[in-house]
């Protein structure tokens, strides 16, 4: 190089068109936000909003001190809640495993018919929250633990099915090929070539889902599907805020404990 040629005096991070597009994008987002905000708050009664601090202070003062004598009454519903989560998880796993094998590209018996059906089951189960499932099931089979268990199970299918079928698709094909080459039948290829490879993922997913299910089953009672949520609903209906405090603290403790248990178990498995 012989001489320094002309360099631009102004350095800019992006080209002018890029900057324009970026600003345009932000502007569109802000406009969309304002528009949505206006539609959303069309029917909002601002008096209530302004009054919220007073309400909050009122509720807060009623919540303390917690009514600890209510605690023994909560043990049976808590036991029910844990059973809903555990039995629901077991049911969900039982239903999710075949769905996962139908949905995985490398194990599905029919990619044209069964795989789309399995994928739809997974999406449907995933998009509908367990509380909505519970709402439906309480209407159909009546209030009680069974509705809660089935709701949790139905919700778990999508979660477990999706993660499991991804694990199945990620298995090492050469290990499966080697088992096929020995003259193994289809079921044997499954049990020797695929199952050992997905076992750690399977247990990890199951325990993880159980942890989430404990969390979700605490509120199913709000719609009548049994467990500690029933007590929460009852206390809310009678405006017994000091009992609500006890219930919430108990839920919190259960959730933290289940999270700890699931972390320990996943650690032990993997």
């Amino acid at each position: 190089m012989t001489e320094i040629t002309h360099y631009s005096q102004v350095w800019s991070y992006r080209t002018s068109r890029g900057r324009l597009a970026l600003w345009g994008g932000w502007l569109a987002l802000v406009a969309l936000f304002v528009w949505c905000w206006q539609i959303m708050t069309r029917d909002t009664i601002w008096f209530f909003v302004a009054d919220a601090p007073t309400q909050a202070a009122d509720i807060g003062s009623r919540m303390v001190p917690p009514r600890w004598s209510y605690l023994p009454e909560l043990m049976q519903p808590l036991w029910d809640t844990i059973n809903i989560a555990t039995l629901g998880t077991i049911g969900g796993v039982i239903m999710a495993v075949p769905v996962a094998f139908l949905a995985a590209r490398n194990t599905t018996p029919s990619a044209l018919i069964l795989r789309p059906i399995a994928l739809f089951i997974i999406v449907a189960s995933r998009s509908i929250n367990s509380l909505i499932w519970a709402l439906l099931l309480v209407a159909i089979i009546g209030p009680g633990l069974l509705a809660g268990i089935v709701a949790i199970a139905l919700r778990s299918i999508g979660f477990i099915g999706k993660l499991l079928y991804e694990a199945i698709e990620e298995t090492d094909a050469t290990q499966i090929e080697a088992i096929e080459a020995t003259g193994a039948s289809g079921a044997q290829v499954l049990s020797y070539g695929i199952v050992p490879q997905i076992m750690p993922a399977f247990w990890g997913i199951t325990v993880f889902r159980w942890d989430i299910n404990i969390r979700e089953s605490t509120i199913l009672g709000l719609v009548g599907a049994g467990g500690i949520g029933l007590k929460l609903q009852a206390s809310l209906n009678t405006l017994a805020w000091s009992q609500v405090t006890v219930i919430l603290l108990l839920i919190l403790a259960t959730v933290v404990l289940s999270e700890w248990v699931s972390a320990r178990m996943r650690h032990a498995i993997i």
Partner: peptide
């Protein structure tokens, strides 16, 4: 809680 404080509705 928010429904109890702010009333029913999307807010």
């Amino acid at each position: 809680f928010f429904v109890a404080m702010f009333g029913f509705g999307p807010f």
